[in-house]
Amino acid sequence: MARFLIEVIGTLSDAGSLFMVAAGLTLIFGAMRVINLAHGSLYMYGAFLMTTFVGASSGLRFWWSIALAAVIVAALGAVMELGIVRFLVGKEPLTQLVATFALFLILADTALHLWGNGARTVVAPSSVSGRFTIAGAVLPVYDLVIIGVAVAVGIGLWALLRHTSVGWRIRAAVDDPEVLESGGVNLRRLNLGVFAVGALLAGIAGAVVTPQVSVAPGMDESIIVTTLLVVVIGGLGSVTGTALAALVIGIADTVGTLVAPTWASTFMYLAVILVLVVRPWGLLGTPER
């Protein structure tokens, strides 16, 4: 039982951070039909900015550092949208992939100049860096923080999409941008907003996970493949599907390690293939997008 609880919480916290990154990517894809390979870079920038703001101290500063890092990443996203991504809307996906991969390279090299090549860490405030015991299982409090932030992000997104006029426009853009534009909606401004929100989510995820990882170059690369896979098995453009998919990936990972350790790393990819073979448009995707 104790072991089971540890696995469950670990899996949820893993899936939670994955969801936050992937939700931003799927939102951007849904509204703009742009696939952004530099999304992992935004996540990495969130983490690096966090190390800069928190510095050696912790405490209250930790929390506003998350907010500040995320907002700056959102601003960076807005700049990316205005400078480059805007011109990719409506282009072939291959063009988008190459262009955003170029952005990925530029951002990676820039990060190397800004933060160096060594690993950095962030210490969470003592209030959340300890552990608690349930049913004999010793669990990190910070796992609950990650899960909590992920749930909050999920609810926030849901509220934004379902209960605001901006959300209505975004959903309309997902369905049919032409109709929306002829209805007098400024698509450019909407796209800018959506891209910034997507970047914000990546920034939050990057900043929030810092106490559990080492922040170093290469973070961008290691997250982007998994994120792409989560987004695709969730169904491109579907935020709910992304949440489900993050869980599927997390569970596949954990089950793999328990069932067949020497094959563990293959389980995640097998899960992706299985889902797509059974449901070629992802869990909650719509055909012909």
Binding site: I6, I9, D14, T257, L258, A264, S265
Partner: peptide, 14 residues
């Protein structure tokens, strides 16, 4: 022996 680049090492740790 977790996979190389595993992000979730909780199962191994536990």
């Amino acid at each position: 022996f977790p996979p190389l680049n595993a992000t979730n090492i909780a199962p191994y740790l536990s």
